[in-house]
Design a protein around this nucleic acid. Sequence first.
DNA 1: CGAATTCATCGAAGCGCTTCGACGAAGCGC
DNA 2: GCGCTTCGTCGAAGCGCTTCGATGAATTCG
Lengths: 343, 343
Amino acid sequence: MATMQDVARLANVSLSTVSYALSETRPVTAATKARIEAAMSELGYHRNAAARSLASHRSHVLALIFPAMQQGLGGTVTEFVASAADTARQSGYQLVLWPFGATQSREIRDLAQQGQADGVLLMEVRLDDPRVEALRKAGVPFTMIGRTARVDDLSYVDIDFTRTTEDAVAYLTDLGHERIAFLNHSQASREEGYGPTVRAHDGYTAAMRRRGLVPHAILCDESPGAGRTAMSELLAGDPDLTAVITMNEIATFGVTVELQSRDLQIPRDVSVLAIVTSPGVGAMSHPPLTTMHAPGAALGRLGVQSLLALLQVGETPSTDPVLLPCPLEPGGSTGPVPPERRR
Amino acid sequence: MATMQDVARLANVSLSTVSYALSETRPVTAATKARIEAAMSELGYHRNAAARSLASHRSHVLALIFPAMQQGLGGTVTEFVASAADTARQSGYQLVLWPFGATQSREIRDLAQQGQADGVLLMEVRLDDPRVEALRKAGVPFTMIGRTARVDDLSYVDIDFTRTTEDAVAYLTDLGHERIAFLNHSQASREEGYGPTVRAHDGYTAAMRRRGLVPHAILCDESPGAGRTAMSELLAGDPDLTAVITMNEIATFGVTVELQSRDLQIPRDVSVLAIVTSPGVGAMSHPPLTTMHAPGAALGRLGVQSLLALLQVGETPSTDPVLLPCPLEPGGSTGPVPPERRR
DNA sequence: CGAATTCATCGAAGCGCTTCGACGAAGCGC
DNA sequence: GCGCTTCGTCGAAGCGCTTCGATGAATTCG
C-alpha cells in the first residue's frame, strides 16, 4: 500500500506538498498538482483514513443512533437510513450505526468520548430523552430526528405533525366531512413520551376545533385486532362518523376489516386517510389507501445536511430547524360525503 | 482529553505498560493493573480510536454493503441491520453503512482499499455479483448475506430456501393438500439473478416432484394487483387448487382479496402459506396468515460472527457456511383439506 | 549457590498523515 | 533598483497508540 511519502518521492515534491495538493488548504501550482496526480494514480494511492483522523482530529464519521424499538413496518426506517448513509458518503463521511435505546445513554457517552464520531444523528427521540443530555455532556455535535419537548437551540429535523394533521383535516373537510375521528398510536407510546403520538393528537385536536368541529381521538395498540376494536368504539361513540384519520398502519388493516364486516363501504360510507405511513402500505389494502406518507428519505438527507452544517460552523448551532410535512398520496379510500349524509 | 501518557504518568508506569494492561497482550501484575485502572478512571481516560487503528493496522470497523433496492416491506432488513450492528458492537467493532448497489463495485473497491474496514458484509447478493470480485481483488475479508451461484470457498450466511420450501410443502401435504401452487417474486427479479427467486422455485419444484405431485409455480410482480391477477391465473390453471404458497408479501395481499372476491374462504377452500415474510406481516391479514418468517435477526448475528471468525484466522476462509430455515408461525390461513375435496 | 530461565516492565521506533513556521523566488510600488 | 509583500514549496514536529527488543529482578534447578 503506497503512502503519501511514496507519492511525494515519485512526483519529486515534499510530503507536505502532496498533502496540500490533496486537501487544497494551500495553493499548489497546476504543474505540480498534475505530477502529483500522475504519481498517485501510478501507485494506486489511497490516503489512509486512520492516519488522517489522528493527525487532523476529525474522523469523518457520523454516528446514527438507531432505534432498537420497531414502530411500524420498518420501511420508513430503511429509507431513512439508506438516504442518510448516501448523503453522508457523498460528503466524504461514513455513517456508523450505534444501536442504542433511550436507556443506554451511558454507552453512548462512552463511544462519543472516544472520538469515534465527529457528529451524531439521534433517531426516535422521546419528548424527554436522556440521550440528549448524554450527548451534550460528551460535547459531540448532534442533530435529532424528531425532537424533545423543549428544543432550546438544538438542531433537529422532524415530521411536521401540526401541518400534516392540519392538511389531513383540511383534505377531508374539503370533501365535506365534519365527523372525523383520529386513530393514534398506542397508549403505551404516549406514556413513554413518544413525540408523534403527542404532537399528532394536539395537531388533530386543534385543526378540528379551529373549524368548530368536535375532535374524537382514540389511542390504539399496533395490531389489526386492536384496530378493529378501536374502530368499533369510534362508531359506538359516533355512529354518524364519515371519516377516520389513522396514524397506526398496522391497526389500519383492522380498521378496514371492521368497516367491511359492518357492510360499511370505503369510501362511500366511511373515508379512511392513513397518515405518516411507510412507503408502499397504501397499495396493500383494497381499495388502495389514500395516504400521507412519512418523508423518510428526505429526513435522512436533511438530517445529515443539518449535522454537517453544525460541524462546519463549529460553535454556532444556528442551523435552521427543519419540519417536513407528509405529502398526500391519493388513493381510493377517501371520497366526498354523499349528500344524504350531510347535515 | 487524557492520553495514555497521562495515565502512565499518574500510575507511575511506562506508556507501554498501560497499553499492555489494556490489550492484555503481555502479562501485567494485578497491583500495577489496579493502579492503572485507578488512574484511568480518575482522568476519565478513553483510548483514541484513530491512533489505535493507525498503529495496529486494524480499524475495528465492519462495513455493511446496504441494498439500495427495496424488496418487501423493509422489516427484515431493519431487523437484520439492527442485529448485525449490535453483535458487532458487542465484539468491539463498529458497523458502517456503504450504500452501494450491484453496479457500484468500483466505489466499493476504492473504499475497501483505503483500509476503511477490516471486513465487509455484503447484503442482497446476486447469483452473479460483480461486487464479489471487487472485494476479492481489494483483498478484504467478507461474508455474504445470501450467496452467489458458485460459492467456492466464500463465507456466507443465507436463508435455507431448499429446506424452507420443503418444510412448506411438507406442512401442507401433512394437512392433506396435494394441489399446491407457488407464487414467487417477479420475473424481473429472476432475470437479474436474484437468488431467493431461483432457489425457492427449485426447492418448491423438487419438493413437489419428490412426492409425485405436480408443481405449479408462477412469477408475480410486487403489488397486490399483480397478486390478484396471479391468483386468477393459478385458479384458471387448476380450479381444484387447495393451497398456495406465496413468497411475495405485497402480492399476498392481493391473493387474499382475489380469493375473497371469488367467495373462496381461507382456509376452508384454499390455504395460504406465506414464506420468507417480514416480521409482523402475518398479523396484517384477516385471518392472520400462517407464515414462515425470514430470520432477519439471526442472519445479522451469524453474518457478523462468521465475518469476525474470518478476521481471526486470517488466511483460512474455512468458516462453515450457514443456512437458516424460516421458522413456521402458525396462523389462521392454513387448514386441512375437507374430506369432500380429497381425491 | 551460581547459571539459566522466566517474568514484569521499560524505552523507542514507527504507523501515515496534517499543519505550522520558514524560506527562497518572484512580483510590486516608488 | 531597493525593500516589501505574495506565492509555492519544504522540513519537522507532532497526533496517541502498538509492538519489538532489551533489561533487571525474581524464580528455578542441578
